[in-house]
Computed example of a mutant assay.
Amino acid sequence: MTARARSRTRSTAAAIALTAGITGATMLLTACGPTGDNASVSTSPSAKAGSKGVSGAKKNGTTTNGGAKNGTAAKPVSHTRPVTPALNGTAHNGLTISDGTRYVVMNGTRVDFGTAVRDLAWSPNGAKAAFIDGDGDLAVANPDGSGRVVVAKNPGNQTWSHPTWQVRPYDTQNQIPAANNLLFAVRNANVWKLYGIPATAHQGTPKVLSLNAESGPGAPSIPQTGNSWPNAAGKYGTSVYANAGTGDVYIRDDYLRQQGSKLAAGSEPAMSPAQDQDIVFVRSVGGHDHLFLETSTNGGPTYKDLTPHATTDYTEPAFSPDGRTIAARTPSGIVTLPANGSQAPVRVSSYTGLPAYRG
């Protein structure tokens, strides 16, 4: 089934199958300092004494670390360090955690990127990291923080957040060019929009993403503002994002032609890199933020609450490269769980921040 067919199946069935309320997900942010625990620190070759750290960093979204959910303000940052010894849980599994400081938790240690790292996202092959740096710019670097390049420079008075890689190969059959882009959210004059730029640009100028609705009679329009939290994955370069105004998750397909539709009530969506039809997102249920999995089938989308017995908030989900595991943030650290919901979440790290997987 093509990306267009999947998108059309989702939107038609979702309008009938899902009428749940708007999510109320709230993020709790914790900044871990460079000392005070037993984890070692790996210093990147690009780290300089004069590099800007957290103190000189511009805000990402409306928070001072992590990422802003749907453009809304998060709770105040806590500077409490993890209890010694800190539970790391990032060795040999590709999991990474960024919390707005210059230190990224990864490979069982912490790597010094030499600048504040917000909303870290990895290229599908794991060779490059994209993030919002201490100057509020969109940057790309090697996994150890070296070779940092400013892909796009923030002109000022804007908030940039949550970059994601849109990568797909050249399609010889349909003559569709290859893509290697970075999509991200921009708040300008309190208005959120989605932007894109080639990942290989150097201080380039990003452009507003087109957000066209699916064609056909009765197809609802797509909101052009209030959009944030983009996430792209899969061989077609399809992406999902959240809209603060409607409280819904949307899908954007530009494979054969650009079109999109509403998927479900929720926020903070992520697409499976391995299974294009699988999307995880956050929705408030019974006073806690739950993780939901949406799977597209020929009969329409199906929805599953992956955390039906939640006694805490699960936010900011991310898929592993094979699509079998989901990592999520909680107030006490990072948890992982099977993407099929067969087991309850297990805490793997006492560090709190934005989880992401390096391919």
Rank of each mutant, 00 (worst) to 15 (best):
G287C: 14
Q258A: 12
S272M: 03
A232K: 04
R252M: 11
I197R: 08
G260H: 09
D289W: 12
P220T: 10
D278V: 00
A242T: 09
V249S: 03
P217S: 09
T225A: 08
A232S: 15
K235F: 00
D278R: 02
P206H: 09
T295F: 04
S215F: 01
P230C: 07
A264D: 11
P230I: 11
Y250G: 02
F281H: 14
A199K: 05
A199W: 04
D276H: 04
Q277C: 01
T238H: 07
H288F: 15
D248V: 09
T225H: 09
G286L: 03
G237I: 05
V285K: 13
K235L: 03
M271T: 09
D248P: 06
T225W: 05
I222E: 01
V280N: 05
P217T: 05
G286Y: 04
D248H: 15
L256C: 00
S261M: 02
D276S: 14
A213T: 13
D276M: 12
D248Y: 13
Q224T: 12
Y250S: 05
E268S: 00
G237A: 06
E268N: 00
H290N: 10
V249P: 02
S228C: 11
R257F: 15
D254K: 10
Q224G: 06
A213Q: 14
G237T: 06
E294L: 15
G204D: 05
E294A: 13
Q259D: 04
P273M: 13
I222K: 03
M271R: 15
G287V: 13
T205D: 03
Q275C: 00
T295C: 03
P269A: 01
A265Y: 01
T295G: 02
A264I: 06
G196Q: 15
Q224D: 10
E214W: 01
T246M: 00
D278P: 00
G247P: 02
T246V: 00
L209C: 07
A199F: 06
S284N: 15
E294S: 10
I251Y: 04
I251A: 06
